[in-house]
Design a protein around this nucleic acid. Structure first.
Lengths: 360, 360
DNA sequence: CGTATTTGGTAAACCGTTTAATCATTATAA
DNA sequence: TTATAATGATTAAACGGTTTACCAAATACG
């Protein structure tokens, strides 16, 4: 019995612009002013073709007269979507400051914005995983889908997503039954090795990251195969773990050079390790590329700005982020076929590589 | 008449773990199983002291028996908060890949996670501002508050926040009537200048960024004052705009050195410009620090990894992000007093600075 | 011309919580 | 002992949209 109209202020002429008091203008006010039902307003909002020109115009007019903006919380509650995506990353040291992640995330954000989605940031800290908060993200209806970047096969909790049927997509790694978008690191490594061998290098060391990452395994395998085919089968591989960082790239290089002074080239699995190698070479008084050629991977911004500028493989991280985001949204919108995309990579020649020193 | 109990399955013994079908378990099921009202469950959830031991235990038990997780959309709809904060940035080239922003955001994310808030990322693209989407963020109830980083006084749309009474906090700039958290760039600049003058440098160039940023103005003013007091009032300032980037830092340095070959030291307003300067010096065959001392600002990660390692000012960006986030949340939770915090900075001596070359 | 179908719109249920206002109890005070 | 207050839980009304089922009028069909 409280549904009758008398108590409502009804259509009073002076209600223009923002409402005076605290109360925000809602869909009901719009409906009242436009003299239609709330259902109609909702349908106009959602471009439902059922509502035709005349009515639509009337409603639209009132909407921007009152500056009405639909409450997205309410929308999410009744509709199926939150229009929020999460980007999940491991907790490396200040992940966000890393150009690798940064490029990916930039791509993700730009694409998301273009498609009307918002992006949430999450770090998979130990307690995050322990308390199953990655699951809460879906269960508590924070997000519609999640993008996982920077993870290795050791991060088994990622398996939860596939198991529960939650929409998750992994970037630059494959596994756990998840969708994935990756750069063609195998091809990148091959291009590097071909190039180095062409330059006459035979003793080539590799600074690798965790082999628990699919793309890194690809690079390592390619490296091994190249060496094998160059030496005619003899095992001349020189692998050192640089753990993806400058610091470990530095120490790994140091070890490598001490143990194998005949190394003339270093292939680093990413640019950060390559920078570490550069640093180490400089400290030892080795000239790059005179005494030692160094090549990295990813073509992060800084690669062009170090001395000497770094020869590297361009992995289209920004585009990878864009594509990953787009495909995830496809899935949310109902795409059935799993996503498995590979983006091409190419060599970028700069100043850190040259012909091998004449072998003694 | 649809409120009676018969149709409900009621408390059936076998309902354990996740519900079998599609439907998620809601607060009503919990209430039914625990034989209390939904209000009671809600109060248990929110640690309302009104609910005592006995009942609380009973409810809690059912909650984790059924693995219930409250729907945060529904929570937000009826409560006042979304528990979502936005980080707003200008659209520089791939902002996220920038170590400066990265460190800030890392700090913000970590603190937010610790305080149970989620972080959303937004880029203030031209159309974003034109369509007033920064306002939508509040009007459509996406967020409770917003952190603005990387903006200058030219970004006048930031004024909207204060005007509308939306909770916004600016990092490393002050203005628009917004709360702010900044590093003490003035002190940083002073430490640099004192140090360079001590080393005997007199012709010191400065690579600055936009003077529309408060903190940059502070650095420029400090620089000018230092020069003036060192030369006894004569205007020996050598200011070139490096626009905060490596590229412009490079070209600015190039111009500076061409025009003033007697410059023995360069003070760059941030590390990126300093890296550009380093690059330029190397290209010109100038040894750093032998021929030219270079100092940066911010102490980004790469500063330690270039050749030579860069002398710089440490601005605690990570902590700044943490504090900014914390204070914003204070405000959301009701803090009345505006926020205006300044974090201390200090010089980090590395290898890019040394005594000035004997003046001719 | 009478009936079937389409069209444009409405009423009301629903999404899953929080929170006033209310109501039995039981403890406290007069 | 009775009125009063405190305690612990409940009822029902928000919160602000979407959506299903339904309806009247208009159009199509035989």
């Amino acid at each position: 019995m409280a549904e009758t109209s008398p108590p409502q202020p009804a259509a009073n002429g002076r209600a223009k612009g923002k409402p005076r008091g605290g109360k925000r203008v809602g869909i009901r006010e719009i409906a009242a002013q436009a003299e239609v039902s709330v259902a109609t307003v909702s349908m106009v909002l959602n471009n439902n073709p059922k509502i035709t020109g005349e009515t639509r115009a009337k409603v639209t007019k009132v909407i921007d007269q009152l500056g009405y903006r639909p409450n997205r919380i309410a929308q999410s509650l009744s509709s199926k979507y939150t229009n929020l995506l999460a980007v999940l990353m491991p907790t490396l040291r200040h992940t966000m400051a890393d150009p690798y992640f940064g490029e990916l995330i930039s791509g993700i954000c730009d694409k998301a914005a273009r498609l009307g989605q918002k992006i949430m940031l999450e770090h998979a800290k130990p307690d995050f995983v322990r308390e199953k908060r990655h699951i809460d993200l879906f269960d508590r209806r924070y997000i519609d889908g999640i993008l996982c970047i920077g993870f290795s096969d050791k991060h088994t909790f990622l398996g939860d997503f596939a198991e529960r049927g939650d929409l998750a997509l992994m970037v630059n790694n494959v596994g756990f039954g998840l969708d994935h978008v990756v750069c063609d690191y195998a091809s990148g490594a091959e291009q590097i090795m071909t190039y180095l061998l062409q330059l006459g290098h035979r003793r080539i060391g590799m600074l690798h990251g965790s082999p628990d990452v699919y793309t890194m395994r690809q690079m390592m395998d390619t490296y091994k195969k190249s060496i094998a085919s160059a030496t005619g089968g003899e095992d001349d591989t020189l692998l050192v773990d640089g753990r993806f960082t400058e610091e470990h790239g530095y120490t790994a290089t140091s070890q490598l050079l001490s143990k194998h002074p005949d190394v003339t080239a270093i292939f680093a699995g990413n640019d950060k390790m390559a920078l570490g190698a550069l640093h180490c070479a400089a400290e030892r008084g080795l000239s790059v590329p005179g005494d030692l050629s160094v090549v990295g991977c990813d073509n992060i911004q800084y690669a062009a700005f170090v001395n000497p500028a770094l020869t590297t493989v361009n992995t289209p991280l920004y585009d990878t982020g864009m594509l990953a985001c787009e495909r995830l949204i496809d899935r949310i919108r109902g795409r059935k076929r799993p996503v498995a995309e590979v983006l091409p990579t190419h060599l970028v020649l700069r100043d850190s590589t040259s012909l091998a020193k004449q072998t003694q």
